[in-house]
Amino acid sequence: MSGSQRSLAKGSPAPGPVPDGLIRLYSMRFCPYAQRPRLVLAAKGIKHEVVNINLKNKPEWFFEKNPLGLVPCLEISDGKIIYESAIVCDYLDEAFPGKKLIPTDPYEKAQQKLLLEHFSTVISALYKILFAKKDNQDTSELKLQFFEKFKAIEEALTKKNTSYFGGELVSMMDYMIWPWFERFPLFDVLEFLEKTPRINAWYKLMLQDPAVKETYTEPDVLLAFYKLYSQNSVDAADYGLD
Rank of each mutant, 00 (worst) to 15 (best):
D105W: 08
P210L: 07
T215L: 06
L222K: 05
A132K: 15
D235N: 10
P19V: 07
A156L: 10
E214D: 11
M172W: 12
M206V: 02
R6Y: 12
K80W: 00
Y226E: 15
D188S: 15
D105C: 10
V50E: 02
A201R: 10
D174N: 06
G69S: 11
P219Q: 01
D242K: 07
Y33V: 09
C31S: 13
F181T: 07
Y239P: 00
R29W: 15
K44N: 04
A211E: 06
L101D: 02
G240Y: 11
W202Q: 06
D220K: 11
L157S: 04
F119I: 09
Y216Q: 12
S124Y: 12
P19I: 04
S230G: 02
F184N: 06
K195I: 10
L68Q: 14
E60R: 09
E94H: 14
F62C: 10
D209P: 13
V51Y: 03
C31V: 13
P179C: 07
Q112N: 12
P106E: 03
Y216K: 14
D209S: 02
N136C: 04
K56E: 13
S140V: 15
Y239I: 02
K128D: 15
Q145G: 15
L241Y: 02
A14Q: 14
K143E: 07
D174H: 03
E214T: 11
N200G: 01
A237C: 12
P185D: 04
E64I: 00
D105Y: 01
E168M: 14
R29F: 03
P210R: 10
K47A: 14
F225Q: 05
E108N: 01
E148R: 07
Y229D: 13
Y33H: 10
E155H: 14
L144W: 03
L8Y: 04
N54V: 05
S163G: 10
K56F: 08
L222F: 08
A236C: 09
P37T: 04
S124N: 14
Y91V: 11
V71D: 12
L169S: 04
N52S: 06
G69M: 06
K149R: 07
Q145N: 14
T196Q: 07
G166F: 09
T217S: 13
N57I: 03
V221G: 08
N200W: 02
L25H: 00
M173K: 07
V189L: 06
K58S: 06
N161A: 15
G69V: 06
Y26K: 03
E108H: 11
N161I: 12
A211N: 09
A156D: 15
K47C: 07
G21M: 11
D135M: 13
V18F: 01
A43Y: 01
P59D: 01
L144T: 14
E75L: 01
K227T: 12
K100I: 02
K227R: 14
E214A: 15
L205F: 08
P219R: 08
E182C: 09
V50Y: 00
M173R: 02
S7R: 14
E94N: 13
F96Q: 08
Y33N: 08
F192A: 12
S120P: 00
L114V: 05
F119T: 04
L70I: 05
S140A: 15
V212Q: 02
V51P: 01
A86Q: 08
T158S: 13
G167Y: 14
S12L: 01
S2I: 03
G21K: 12
W202A: 01
F181P: 00
P17I: 03
E168I: 14
N66T: 12
Q112Y: 00
R29M: 12
N66E: 07
P37M: 02
I87N: 04
L101K: 06
E108K: 10
